[in-house]
Design a protein around this nucleic acid. Structure first.
Length: 786
DNA sequence: TCTGCTCACACGTTTGAAACGG
DNA sequence: ACCGTTTCAAACGTGTGAGCAG
C-alpha cells in the first residue's frame, strides 16, 4: 500500500497520520488519537483512502502530494475556532492557504484551484465563548473557484516554490461582480485545493487531485466573535501590526487618541487655525504620544491582556522623552521590533511565515497566548488538539449512526464531454454511508463544464429546471449502467469509471486529504469494501448510457443496473434543499482553431477511448476541526452535526441541488429523498451523493451538435483561447440565467449550436471584462465573474 | 434590546513606477 | 542605452468602533 502511495509514507508526519493498516472493514482497529478530530468531522468530509490503481504504479502522478506550509498556524487558529472575516468588498484569508506541491510531472501543466465547501448545513452563533449551531444553513451561494494566478503552470513550476492562495478573497456579497468567493456569514467552510492536470490551457484532465486540510476549516463572520481569534490574527498578520500592543493603532493608542479627541477643542483653540491642517498630522501624532506618556490607562479598558510578551517588550510610552523628540524616539524604539518582525515575519515575503513563527511559538510555549486552550478544551466537543508532535496515530472511522446532518462538499469533477445534446442525468442519491468516490473519465478532449443536467427528455433550457415529475426524477437517477437511455448514450464506454470508497477511512487531519486519480482498471480497492461499493466494471460501464452519466456514476459507483442509489434518510429539518449543496460546474474556454482532434494525444493522454483522461474526483472531507459543535437546540437534534457520532452527511446534497430546481416544492423535503431514489440498492451503503459536484467536463467541440451553453464561464486570462475574427461575429448569448438568487445550474442548448458555446459566451465576457488582477475566479453556479 | 452588518477610519504592508547611479 | 538599486507614493490589507437595520 505504501509502495503504491508513497505520499502516505513520505513527507512530514502529522499528528494524526492517516494510513491504512487494516482493511477498511476493520475500522474498529483504528486508534483513537484523532478521535476528537474525527468526531468533529462530519462524515461527508471524510477523506477517501488512496485508491490503488493502474496509475499507482506509474510513478509520480500517484505520489502527488500537497503539504500545508503554514500548518502550525492553521492549527493554532483551528484550536480556537478559526474565523474569517468576509466583507462586501472582499477580504483575504488569514491565515492564508500556503501549500507545497510535490509529485507532479515537471513537464506537464497543472491548474490549481481553490474553492470553499460548506462543512455542514448549519448556521452558527458565538454564544458562551463557543460556536453553537443555531439553525439551518442559508441557501447555497454560487460556487466559485479561485484559480491560482500562475495557472496553468508546469509541475516544475508548482514544485519549485510555495504556492499561496493569499489573493483569494472572500465576500458575503451575493451580487459580487469581482469574482470573489461568495460565502455566507456564520457558516462553516472547508477550503479545498484542486490540482488539475492541464495539457494546455484548453485541455484539462488527465489527472485531478483534491486536497483538504482539516485544520483550515473556518467560520465566516463579518466581525470577529472570539477575541482570542482577534488577538491571534493581530499577532500573526503583518497587516495588523498596527493593532499590536506596541503599534500606533493598538488599543492603548486608540484610547489615547480618543482621549485626545475629547480635548481637541482645546487644541483648536490654542492653535493657529490657518496652519492647523498642515500641522495636524504631526502634531496630533506627537500629541498622541505625549498623551501616551501619561499614566497608562487601566488595562481592562482595552481588554487586552497585559501579559503579552510583545506588550511587555514594547517601550512604555511613559518613558518617552520630551515632545520634540518623542516621535522620533518612539519610532526609533519601534524600529528594532519592526525590523525584527519584518526579518522574521516577512523574510521570505510570505505573510504567513510570521504566522508560522507565531504559531510555532505558541506551540512550544515561547509565545504565550492567554489561555484559549483551556477555554476551548472545556467546550463540548471542543477543538481538535493538533499536537505538534508528529505521530502516526490513526483516526478511528466514523460510522454513521443516524441520519446525515449536513451536506457534503461538492466534488470537483472532470467529466467526459457530452456527445449528445443532453446532459447527464441527475446525480444519484446517496446511501446511509457515504462512500468516497473516484471517477475517471478517459478523455483527452478539452474540458467542458457540466452544469445541472436537465430532464433527459426535454432539451435543456432555463425553464426546464424548475419542475419535473418525480417519475422523471427516478429515471434520471437510475443507475448509470442501467439499460441505455437514448438520452444518455454517446460517450465511449471507457470514458468513465467510478470508484466508491468507504468513507470510513479517515484521513490524516494534518495531512492533506487527497483523492488520487484512478485509472480505468478494476483493481482491488484498498480502503473500500468491494462488496458495498462495487467497483465499476469497465465492460459493464461500456454501456453507453453509463459512460454518459458521469454524475450518476459518481454516486452509484455500480455497474449493475439494480444498484440504484437510494436516499433513505430524511433531510435535516433545517436543511432545506435550497440550502444544500448543489452541483457546480466549471466551464473552460476552448478554441476551435486550436482544438486538437479527439484522437490526437500526447504525453500519455489518450484519445477518447484509449486515453486516461480527466480524472473525476469526489471531494473529500475531513476530520473536522475543532469547532465546538454542541448539539443543536433545534427540535430535531438528530440532524445536528454530532461530533460524537459520525453522521453520514447528507449524501444527497448534490442530488438535492440537482433536483431541487427540477422538482415540485412538495418534493423538496424528506419525502423527496426517500422517493427520488427508490431503486434497489443492493450494494447498500454505496452511493454517496455527497455533494454538489463541480464538474469539469470535456468540450464537445468535436460534436457540434452537443453545444452546451454553460452559464458559468471561466474567464481566466491565461485560459482564454485565442479567438479568431469568426468568433467576434457571434452575438452575445442571451441572458439565459437569472441573477443570483436561485443559482440554478443548467446546461442550455445553444441555438447556435455550430459554435462552441462556451467559447462564445466566454469571449463575450472577455470582451467586456478583464482579468481579475488578483487571480481568477470561477463562478461555478453560472455567472461570469469577470 | 439584541444581533449582525456596513462603513469610515487609522495604521501598516505591499507594490510598482520614477529617480538615480554605475 | 541598459541594468540594478533606491525612493516614494498610491493602493491595498487589517481590525476597530460607531451607526444602522431587522
Amino acid at each position: 500500500m505504501l509502495e503504491m502511495y508513497p505520499s502516505l509514507a513520505l513527507g512530514p508526519q502529522r499528528d494524526c497520520y492517516y494510513r491504512e493498516r487494516e482493511p477498511p472493514n476493520h475500522m474498529a482497529l483504528y486508534p483513537s488519537s484523532c478521535d476528537m478530530a474525527a468526531r468533529a468531522m462530519p462524515p461527508h468530509l471524510l477523506a477517501p483512502p488512496p485508491v490503488p490503481s493502474e496509475h499507482a504504479s506509474k510513478g509520480k502522478q500517484d505520489s502527488v502530494k500537497l503539504e500545508l506550509e503554514n500548518s502550525s498556524l492553521w492549527k493554532q487558529f483551528n484550536s480556537i475556532g478559526t474565523e474569517m472575516i468576509i466583507t462586501k468588498k472582499g477580504r483575504r484569508m488569514f491565515p492564508q492557504l500556503k501549500v507545497k506541491l510535490s509529485g507532479l510531472n515537471p513537464t506537464l501543466r497543472y491548474i490549481l484551484l481553490l474553492d470553499m465547501v460548506p462543512v455542514d448545513a448549519s448556521r452558527y452563533r458565538f454564544q458562551g465563548d463557543a460556536w453553537q449551531v443555531v439553525g439551518g444553513a442559508e441557501a447555497r451561494l454560487p460556487d466559485r473557484v479561485f484559480i491560482h494566478p500562475d495557472s496553468p503552470a508546469t509541475g516544475a513550476h508548482w514544485q519549485s516554490r510555495n504556492i499561496s492562495f493569499h489573493r483569494a478573497k472572500l465576500t458575503n456579497n451575493t451580487l459580487d461582480t469581482q469574482g470573489y468567493i461568495i460565502l455566507h456569514s456564520l457558516h462553516r467552510y472547508q477550503p479545498r485545493v484542486h490540482v488539475i492536470e492541464a495539457r494546455d490551457v484548453l485541455r484539462w484532465g488527465g489527472g485531478q487531485y483534491s486536497f483538504i486540510f482539516p485544520e483550515t476549516q473556518f467560520l465566516t463572520v463579518t466581525a470577529y466573535q472570539n477575541n482570542k481569534i482577534t488577538e491571534l490574527k493581530i499577532k500573526s498578520n503583518p497587516f495588523a501590526k498596527g493593532f499590536r500592543d506596541d503599534g500606533m493603532n493598538s488599543k492603548r493608542q486608540r484610547d489615547v487618541r480618543q482621549k485626545r479627541k475629547l480635548s481637541e477643542p482645546l487644541d483648536i483653540v490654542s492653535c493657529d487655525p490657518c496652519d492647523s491642517t498642515e500641522l495636524l498630522p504631526q502634531s496630533s501624532e506627537l500629541h498622541c504620544l505625549a498623551l501616551a506618556s501619561l499614566p497608562n490607562l487601566p488595562e481592562n479598558i482595552c481588554g487586552y491582556s497585559s501579559d503579552s510578551p510583545i506588550q511587555e517588550s514594547s517601550p512604555p510610552e511613559q518613558q518617552q522623552p520630551a515632545l520634540d523628540l518623542l516621535g522620533q524616539a518612539f519610532i526609533a524604539s519601534q524600529m528594532t521590533d519592526i525590523v525584527a518582525d519584518i526579518d522574521t515575519d516577512m523574510s521570505d515575503g510570505q505573510q504567513d511565515e510570521s504566522g508560522n513563527k507565531v504559531a510555532d511559538g505558541l506551540m512550544d510555549g515561547s509565545i504565550h497566548l492567554p489561555s484559549y486552550n483551556e477555554a476551548y478544551s472545556n467546550a463540548p466537543l471542543s477543538s481538535t488538539s493538533f499536537d505538534s508532535t508528529p505521530t502516526l496515530s490513526l483516526c478511528p472511522p466514523i460510522l454513521p449512526t443516524h441520519l446525515p446532518p449536513s451536506p457534503p462538499p461538492p466534488p470537483l469533477r472532470i467529466t467526459p464531454p457530452p456527445s449528445t445534446l443532453l446532459p447527464p442525468p441527475y446525480l444519484p442519491p446517496s446511501s446511509l454511508r457515504p462512500p468516497l468516490l473516484l471517477q475517471f473519465s478517459q478523455r483527452s478532449s478539452p474540458t467542458l463544464i457540466y452544469p445541472l443536467p436537465p430532464p433527459p427528455q426535454a432539451p435543456p433550457s432555463a425553464d426546464s429546471y424548475h419542475s419535473i415529475p418525480p417519475s422523471e426524477l427516478r429515471r434520471d437517477l437510475a443507475s448509470p449502467c442501467m439499460s441505455a437511455d437514448v438520452a444518455f448514450s454517446t460517450l465511449s464506454p471507457s470514458s468513465c469509471q467510478t470508484v466508491q470508497l468507504d468513507h470510513t477511512m479517515l484521513p490524516d487531519p494534518n495531512q492533506a486529504v487527497q483523492v488520487s486519480p484512478v485509472c480505468n482498471q478494476a483493481a482491488p480497492l484498498l480502503g473500500f469494501n468491494p462488496t458495498a461499493y462495487p467497483y465499476t466494471d469497465p465492460p459493464a460501464c461500456s454501456n453507453v448510457s453509463q459512460s454518459h452519466l458521469p454524475s450518476l456514476t459518481d454516486f452509484s459507483g455500480h455497474s449493475a443496473p439494480q444498484s440504484h442509489p437510494s436516499l433513505s434518510y430524511p433531510l435535516p429539518p433545517h436543511a432545506a434543499l435550497s440550502s444544500l449543496s448543489r452541483p457546480t460546474s466549471l466551464t473552460f474556454p476552448a478554441s476551435v482553431q486550436t482544438w486538437p482532434p479527439p484522437n490526437v494525444s500526447s504525453n500519455g493522454i489518450r484519445p477518447s477511448l484509449a486515453i486516461p483522461g480527466a480524472a473525476q474526483v469526489q471531494a473529500a472531507s475531513f476530520p473536522l476541526s475543532s469547532f465546538p459543535h454542541p448539539q443543536s437546540s433545534l427540535p430535531n437534534s438528530a440532524y445536528q452535526p454530532s461530533p460524537g457520532s459520525a453522521v453520514p452527511s447528507a449524501s444527497f446534497p448534490s442530488f438535492q441541488h440537482s433536483v431541487s430546481s427540477h422538482i415540485p416544492p412538495s418534493l423538496t423535503n424528506h419525502s423527496l429523498a426517500s422517493t427520488a431514489y427508490p431503486q434497489n440498492q443492493t450494494t447498500a451503503p454505496s452511493s454517496y451523493p455527497p455533494t454538489s459536484p463541480v464538474e469539469i467536463g470535456s468540450f464537445a467541440q468535436f460534436n457540434p451538435g452537443a453545444a452546451y451553453l454553460p452559464e458559468m464561464v471561466l474567464h481566466h486570462p491565461s485560459l482564454l483561447p485565442p479567438l479568431g475574427p469568426s468568433h467576434l461575429t457571434s452575438s452575445s448569448p442571451p441572458a439565459l440565467y437569472p441573477p443570483f438568487a436561485s443559482y440554478p445550474l443548467r446546461l442550455c442548448q445553444d441555438p447556435r449550436s455550430s459554435f462552441p458555446i462556451p467559447l462564445r459566451h466566454m469571449y463575450r465576457q472577455h470582451q467586456h471584462g478583464h482579468a481579475h488582477p488578483q487571480g481568477s475566479y470561477l463562478d461555478m453556479s453560472g455567472r461570469a465573474v469577470f
